[in-house]
Amino acid sequence: SFNTVDEWLEAIKMGQYKESFANAGFTSFDVVSQMMMEDILRVGVTLAGHQKKILNSIQVMRAQMN
Rank of each mutant, 00 (worst) to 15 (best):
I54Y: 01
K52G: 07
S28P: 01
N66C: 11
M65L: 11
G25C: 05
A24S: 10
D39N: 03
L47E: 14
S28E: 06
V5M: 03
R62F: 11
A48I: 13
M37T: 07
S57A: 15
F29C: 05
I58G: 00
A48T: 12
I12Q: 05
K18R: 11
I58C: 04
A48W: 09
Q51D: 02
I40C: 05
K13N: 15
G15S: 11
V5P: 04
A63M: 09
K13C: 11
G15D: 09
F21N: 00
M35L: 12
D39C: 03
F2W: 15
F26K: 05
T46V: 15
K13D: 14
E38D: 11
Y17R: 01
Q51T: 06
T27W: 06
S33C: 07
L41F: 08
F2L: 10
S33E: 06
L47I: 15
L55R: 04
K18N: 05
F29V: 06
M37H: 12
L41H: 08
K18A: 12
M35V: 03
Q34K: 12
L41T: 08
S20N: 13
V32H: 02
L41E: 11
V5G: 00
S1M: 14
G15T: 07
R42S: 13
I12R: 02
Y17E: 00
M37N: 06
M37R: 08
Q64W: 09
Q59L: 13
I58Q: 01
V31S: 14
M36T: 15
T4H: 07
V32T: 03
A11S: 15
N66Y: 04
I12N: 05
Q59F: 10
H50L: 03
V31F: 08
A11D: 13
T46I: 14
F26N: 03
F26D: 01
V31Y: 07
K13M: 14
M65Q: 09
D30K: 14
W8C: 02
Q34I: 08
V45P: 01
N23W: 07
S28T: 14
A63E: 15
F21W: 04
Q64Y: 09
I58N: 00
M37G: 05
L47H: 15
R42V: 09
K13P: 01
N56P: 01
S1A: 12
K13I: 05
D39S: 03
L41V: 14
